[in-house]
Amino acid sequence: MKKRWLCLFVENEIGVLAKISGLFSGKSYNLDSLTVGVTEDVTVSRITISLTSDDQTFEQVKKQLNRSVEVIKVVDYTDVAIHMKELMFVKVSGCSEKDIEEIFRISQIFNITVIDYNRDAVLIESVKTENKNNDLIALLGKCFANRIEIVRGGSVAVEALSIDKISMKSISYRNP
């Protein structure tokens, strides 16, 4: 089992997302996250998918996606140098003065932004890799158990500009 990344270019049409997500559920492929947005060409949408699977299943996933009439192109990002980020909001409520201080400290160290704040609640925005966001959730969950609300956007990815082997390692933000 291994974490994989796929980028799909699909027709920007009604039902295409249902087709793709239905393929995953119907064939029992697990899917970790899926994001979709329109591209510079309004007739084309771009989907970023992350999943965890063995090699054989992953080959099937790619073939099955390729087979769909609505799918224009499937790109495997698993071993490609990419930039990848996920937007996440965390709302912490019921905060004491001390909690708020702690949150500001965390946000400084983690390099994340406090975007909203009132006397007893703080809203944090984090644009990080999925793993970094996982770490942040773990930390906040420990400090403020049962008082956090999390909204995750799922990852989006784009190929890095430099493609020589040396930079591949340094750019691969997926495994910080």
Binding site: G15, L23, G26
Partner: peptide, 9 residues
């Protein structure tokens, strides 16, 4: 959708 090659409205 899952039992045909292509379906469209």
């Amino acid at each position: 959708r899952s039992i045909c090659k292509h379906a469209v409205t």
